[in-house]
Simulated scan of single mutants.
Amino acid sequence: MIPGHLTPPYRFIAFDVETANRNAHSICQVGLACVDDWGQIDNFSLLVDPAEPFSDFNTQLHGIDAATVRHAPQFPQLIAALAPLMAQQPIVQHSRFDQRAVEAACGWHGLDVPPLHWVDSVTIARRAWPEFKGNGGHGLGHLKKALSLQFQHHDAGEDARAAAQVVLCAEAKTGRSFVEILAKQGAKSPQSWRPTAAYYEPFE
């Protein structure tokens, strides 16, 4: 299920999900972009059978339907395979929907939520490009144009890679690591940092 060439731990992994319908737990695709210490990205995506109906709206967004996921694993098998990889480094999401979806899917299937360390690349983008507030915003759609990113929106693998690129671009612009960009004044030093919600400002 997971590509055999991966070499964790990474500096961070960007993560994205697509859902079958309006229910956050109805994950039908996940994408991961694994970023090493040199900024190289190992990118892959996996289909998931949500065992739920697909809405026409969601299928029109991402192109995935029941036939597409007919032979895909369901969420319990997927998260059992991914959690050991994901737990080894911070997990970047662009907005907090992806974390909510994983937690909702775990709850729906009666599973414990894996102890993952989530980081929000929207917050990183806001701090790197404050001039975008009220001037296009910090969503992937605008950042794609503003930062000249090349990706296909609403594909989990592509969106995960885009979130990783946002972090790398923010680091290049500010001259600071994403840890330093996120750290509040008075927080632990980046050398001893482990990502927890206490280190971040509330999501707006």
Results as ranks from 00 to 15, higher is better:
Gly186Tyr: 00
Gly141Val: 13
Pro202Gly: 07
Val167Cys: 06
Gly137Lys: 01
Gly136Tyr: 09
Ala81Glu: 12
Thr123Ile: 14
Leu149Phe: 04
Gly107Asn: 12
Phe75Leu: 01
Val92Ala: 07
Lys173Asn: 04
Ala128Asp: 12
Phe97Gly: 11
Gln165Trp: 02
Val167Phe: 06
Leu182Met: 09
Lys184His: 11
Leu140Val: 01
His5Asp: 11
Trp129Gln: 10
Lys184Asp: 09
Ala146Pro: 01
Val166Ala: 07
Trp38Arg: 15
Ala33Arg: 01
Ala163Leu: 10
Ala51Pro: 09
Leu61Lys: 12
Ala128Gln: 11
Arg100Tyr: 08
Glu103Asn: 12
Ala146Lys: 12
Asp155Ile: 01
Glu18Cys: 11
Arg161Tyr: 03
Asn135Phe: 11
Asp42Ile: 02
His153Pro: 08
Ala128Thr: 10
Ala51Gln: 12
Gly4Asn: 12
Arg161Trp: 11
Gly141Phe: 03
Glu204Met: 11
Leu85Gln: 09
His117Trp: 15
Pro76Asn: 01
Gln89Glu: 03
Ile2Cys: 03
Arg100Gly: 13
Val113Met: 03
Met86Tyr: 02
Ile2Tyr: 08
Phe12Arg: 07
Ser26Leu: 12
Ile64Lys: 05
Cys28Thr: 08
Ile79Phe: 00
Val102Trp: 02
Val92Leu: 02
Asn21Gly: 09
Pro53Ala: 05
Pro50Gln: 00
Val69Pro: 06
Glu131Trp: 10
Ala87Trp: 00
Gln93Trp: 08
Val69Leu: 03
Arg126Lys: 14
Ile27Gly: 08
Leu168Glu: 08
Leu61Thr: 03
His94Gln: 06
Gly110Arg: 06
Gly107Arg: 14
Glu18Trp: 05
Ala146Met: 04
Phe44Pro: 05
Phe178His: 02
Glu131Ala: 14
Glu171Ala: 13
Leu143Arg: 11
Leu116Lys: 04
Ser45Leu: 04
Glu158Arg: 04
Asp37Leu: 10
Arg96Thr: 15
Leu78Met: 05
Asp65Glu: 09
His25Phe: 15
Ala72Glu: 02
Pro76Glu: 00
Ser45Pro: 10
Glu180Val: 05
Gly139Tyr: 10
Arg194Lys: 10
Arg96Pro: 01
Trp129Leu: 10
Pro73Phe: 01
Gln74Arg: 15
Asp120Ala: 07
Pro53Asn: 09
Lys144His: 13
Ala172His: 04
Leu47Ala: 03
Asp36Leu: 04
Cys106Leu: 00
Thr123Arg: 11
His109Tyr: 10
Ala66Ser: 15
Glu204Val: 15
Ala198Tyr: 14
Trp108Lys: 13
Lys173Cys: 05
Leu78Ile: 15
Phe178Pro: 00
Gln29Ala: 15
Ala183Met: 13
Ser121Arg: 07
Gln150Ser: 13
Gln185Glu: 14
His62Tyr: 01
Ala160Met: 05
